[in-house]
Amino acid sequence: MSTPAISIQNLTKEFIPPSVMRRGAITAVRDLSLKVEAGHVYGLLGPNGSGKSTTMKVVLGLVTPTSGKTFIFGKNSRDVESREAVGFLPENPYFYKFLTGEETVHFYGKLCGIRGKMLRDRTRELLALVGLEDAANRRVGGYSKGMLQRIGLAQALVQDPRLLVLDEPTAGVDPAGSREICDLILQFKARGLTVLLCSHLLSQVQEICDRIGIMHRGGLVREGPLDHLITIENQTEMVLENASPELLAELRAKIAAGGARLAGEGKPQQNLERYFLDVTSEAKKSDQ
């Protein structure tokens, strides 16, 4: 295979508590090895304090590893150069309050060496992509949480990176906003971007990710393609529409005769997210 987007080799990170009196280090990540292949959407899961954020920070060069190495497209995270190809959206991002949305994207674009017309075009394109054209000239200080996440996505994408690192991109965002962000991530995936995603919202992870890793106490406890991990191999699900009671009785008899066991049966329910979104969008329509 080609160079992995992210490669983590035997990463260990210990934090020495700031207090001089307390001895002993806290191990945030212990001997972690992980690869994220290019083009994948990788979900990193785990309870709070399991080392997900620390791992991300090491990958981005914000924190120095105690031992081990991390690479982005084959370039060591220690080198600033490795960050040419990454876009990062931190958890609950804040930007310079006094800048407008447009200026914010401009600023990050300049940091990536984009200038002039190319920067203006890119900014317009990104603001349209994240749906902030109307708020482009408003100051970021007045943005809602969802808007902040979206401007955060826009700045992460400004230099057209090959890898996106997203830390809780939907935390604190309302369902509609959350849905939009998920859809954006799916778009990126379709365009071939690699995404590393940390999230607590498992249903979203399930929807978006190809592959997941579950961390616990600084180590990786499970890792693999999502389908493999959660598919129950010896069961089959079948959803029928307009089936008559007679047909159902017949099926039940056939199942028993065939030596299989009917493990469960019921009326499927609509997904609450879908229901909520339908109701709110209807209400919006009737407002207009």
């Binding site: 040419e84 958890e91 609950n92 804040y94 930007f95 990050y108 940091l111 700045q155």
Partner: peptide, 12 residues
């Protein structure tokens, strides 16, 4: 404000 994260996560 974690603005620094976003800046240093760029090639800066």
């Amino acid at each position: 404000d974690r603005t620094l994260y976003t800046i240093l996560a760029k090639p800066v």
